[in-house]
């Protein structure tokens, strides 16, 4: 257990000792803040006057906050491959993986440590994003249940991105290949969702397989155990594959 934490902490720190984590957080914060302000001003000027008289009108959490988290998910679709590509592929390229495989730690500990380190960064990112809707507390009241579901949904979505990226990073020694294949896989899962919804070829199965479908129900404020299980299986599956791949390296050389 402690070896996992040692690896995770160092992984997390190394991301902050290069400009990587800083530029990622700054860029995400800037773009999402812009989207947040756009949504907010639209709500104030156009939506609020219309819905003011309605009963059970959609509140600010439905309109502004949900779309903010959806945007965050879409943006991270493009960013996550850049974070995961370094985890194992870069270590391979720089021949530093040997340090970990020679140390008295198991392959599972290496993979979990690396994954946990990235999860910490994801937590920081989601926390910084969540400050925006929290700032609305100054003037209005929020739907806490919906906000919590959106936060959890985004976290699970990003965690599933990270697990897939970690596995693809274990396959190659070229970080760029790892990034491209991760990006391809994530986009493919989104395309599955789109094609599952398209007229004519609508398919429940495609929607179920795509991680976006599950994310959207979180954004609607629905916490369904099936969605949670989907993400946990997705994550566990890819982590196991990564462990198997690294183990296999020792056998195949």
């Amino acid at each position: 257990m402690s070896a996992i934490m040692v690896i995770a902490r160092t992984e997390f720190r190394r991301m902050f000792s290069s400009p990587l984590a800083w530029s990622l957080l700054a860029m995400m914060q800037f773009i999402l803040a812009w989207i947040f302000l756009l949504g907010l001003s639209e709500y104030l000027e156009r939506v609020q006057p219309q819905v003011a008289m309605m009963e059970n009108a959609p509140g600010i959490t439905d309109l502004v906050v949900s779309s903010l988290y959806l945007w965050a998910g879409l943006l991270m679709l493009a960013m996550m491959p850049l974070l995961t590509m370094r985890l194992l592929a870069e270590e391979r390229m720089n021949r530093t993986l040997v340090l970990l495989t020679t140390a008295p730690v198991s392959v599972a500990q290496i993979v979990l440590g690396k994954y946990l380190g990235l999860l910490l960064l994801i937590v920081v990112m989601v926390a910084m994003l969540t400050l925006m809707p929290l700032s609305l507390m100054l003037g209005t009241s929020l739907d806490w249940g919906k906000l919590a579901a959106a936060v959890l949904g985004l976290f699970l979505l990003l965690a599933s991105f990270a697990a897939a990226g970690l596995f693809l990073s274990s396959l190659t020694r070229q970080p760029i290949i790892a990034a491209i294949s991760t990006f391809g896989l994530l986009i493919f899962l989104m395309v599955l969702y789109i094609s599952g919804n398209s007229q004519g070829s609508a398919s429940e199965l495609f929607i179920y397989l795509s991680h976006f479908g599950h994310f959207l129900s979180f954004l609607d404020g629905v916490f369904d155990t099936a969605d949670l299980v989907y993400y946990l299986l997705f994550i566990a599956g890819f982590l196991l594959l990564a462990i198997r791949k690294l183990d296999n390296d020792r056998l195949e050389g």
Binding site: R14, S17, N94, V98, P104
Partner: peptide, 17 residues
């Protein structure tokens, strides 16, 4: 492995630490 210290052909150092 805890009884082994290993220096591979290329030192496994992290350049950003």
């Amino acid at each position: 492995k805890s009884h082994i210290g290993y220096l591979p052909e290329q030192p496994p150092v992290y350049r950003d630490m």
